[in-house]
Amino acid sequence: PVQGEAGVRYAPNSYWKALRERCNKTGALLIFDEIQTGFGRTGSLFAFETMDVIPDVLVMAKAMGGGMPIGAFVADSNIMKCFMSQPVLGHITTFGGHPVCCAAALASLQIIENNKLYHTVEKKSALFEYYLKGLDRIKEIRRKGLLIALEFNDRDFNFKVIHNCLQKGLIVDWFLFCDTAMRIAPPIIINEEEIQHACMLIKKSIKENEI
């Protein structure tokens, strides 16, 4: 429901409601990929929870394992049964369901839920915008929780700023299908002091490349 690699772009809830209705009418499955946005990244456990629709299939990974490799998809029993015979054993993988990775995923989910880590995500996201807004070289700030895009509208300048940030020890990146914008996606446990420091490094990197 949030286009990560396109540079943090998402549609209004009215779009998702219309899409849900269209899928219901045609018999198509509504599949949400929350590999980047799941487990608190956008300010709720999953981004679709704020969109007033429920997908038929939910895909998740990345933060699911708390650093361990694991991915999954969720669907109701009728959909899951299809993968048992169409094709036969279509629902299994060689290393699927590894007990250590599953234990890590469960522990990670318990920590996120027990501490409600996503409850402060929107506040932290707003802090990034507060500290970075008003800079001439940043043409737009797009954000959904702690998935943030700084749009420069300039590929070369973007790559130079990213390089400077990395040289200063700040881990940032670009987007596969939006190389004019810089990706900010810190751990959701980041605190205000760390946000201020990160924004200071970003501002410094931008200024150094304006010379």
Rank of each mutant, 00 (worst) to 15 (best):
M80C: 14
D52G: 08
C23G: 10
A126S: 14
F48C: 06
D52W: 08
L29D: 08
C102L: 05
M68D: 09
M68E: 11
G7A: 09
L147I: 15
V161I: 12
I188A: 00
A18S: 14
F32T: 07
I141E: 02
L176P: 00
R183Y: 00
A61N: 09
K81I: 06
K203I: 10
T94W: 01
L30W: 04
K17W: 10
F95H: 07
A149Q: 08
I189V: 14
N115K: 12
P55F: 13
V53T: 11
I54N: 11
G71Q: 10
K144V: 12
V88H: 15
Y15G: 08
R137S: 11
G43E: 02
I148N: 04
L170F: 00
I189C: 05
Y130H: 13
Q110T: 08
M51I: 12
I195Y: 05
Q3T: 13
I188L: 05
G66T: 04
N78P: 08
D136I: 02
G65P: 03
R137V: 08
I184R: 03
D156C: 03
N209E: 13
I189E: 04
E5M: 09
R137K: 11
A61T: 08
T93G: 13
Q196V: 06
N114P: 03
A104P: 02
E194V: 07
F175Y: 14
A28M: 07
V53M: 11
F73P: 10
P55Q: 11
I138R: 05
T93E: 14
R9T: 06
